[in-house]
Design a protein around this nucleic acid. Structure first.
Lengths: 124, 124
DNA sequence: CTGAACACTTACCAAAATGTAGGTACTTCC
DNA sequence: GGAAGTACCTACATTTTGGTAAGTGTTCAG
């Protein structure tokens, strides 16, 4: 299935210089993963994303979308209309990553009470 | 299995104020996920982690270990010896998160060639 | 005619993250 | 006795990140 090009060194996130680190940092940046997960619901417009992702600013959303697009994780479609109409969706790679990030996020949501964030769960 | 406390609002990472966002940000911080993944190999000492995770500084490793411990994702064991001997391992919750973060990171490693890894994207 | 929505961009500034260098108190190795 | 290793901590400086507010040009609703 997946051939490893012998000319390329094996990707390794533990290696500071490996390009995988860069992608990983974009995905797990403050907004990157949330944008990806939001797009799992399907194609969304800029302002829809903005409303959906609590706390994100226009500036950050625009920037995040650009980075993710450059990484090949989402694709941007401009309908060339006026007023502007642009929407975004996941690429195949984006979907693969989004689902994994979602599983991470979702586990956290579902198990929040076991984590050290709560007011006080009396115990050891 | 999992009881949802009806008194608590449902966790939602899209909500800026949801505590899950904080955990998620720790896990997907620059070093958090890598520390968790590194510990999947078993109990490791501070200096072992430092050597394993390329590019991390002592300061950042120490800080990251503290927040992960506070979140209940890793546990610290001090052998009380001199010279110091301290080691870390994943808690159950830590394992659950580590495996999910690993799957994300590993997919990226394995599929790097499909991604737009072009280094620079002069922005801002 | 005013204001809002759209999808952004830019300048400016504050805050957060991170690196560097030094220190600690001790031990083992050469 | 000097160097290196252990697991940190602290102060300081820098780099990166992110928010705010303003602007763009057009269209539509009131």
């Amino acid at each position: 299935m997946q051939q490893t090009d012998p000319a390329l060194p094996v990707a390794d996130v533990f290696n500071a210089d490996c390009p995988s680190r860069m992608i990983l940092s974009h995905v797990s940046s403050r907004w990157g993963g949330l944008v990806l997960v939001a797009l799992r619901d399907g194609r969304l417009r800029f302002s829809e994303l903005r409303r959906r992702i609590g706390g994100i600013s226009e500036r950050m959303l625009a920037q995040t979308l650009q980075v993710l697009e450059a990484d090949g994780l989402i694709s941007r479609r401009d309908h060339g209309e006026v007023p502007p109409r642009v929407d975004y969706c996941l690429t195949e790679a984006g979907e693969a990553i989004a689902i994994r990030y979602f599983e991470l996020a979702h586990w956290i949501e579902a198990n929040l009470s076991r984590l050290g964030t709560q007011p006080a769960l009396s115990g050891d």
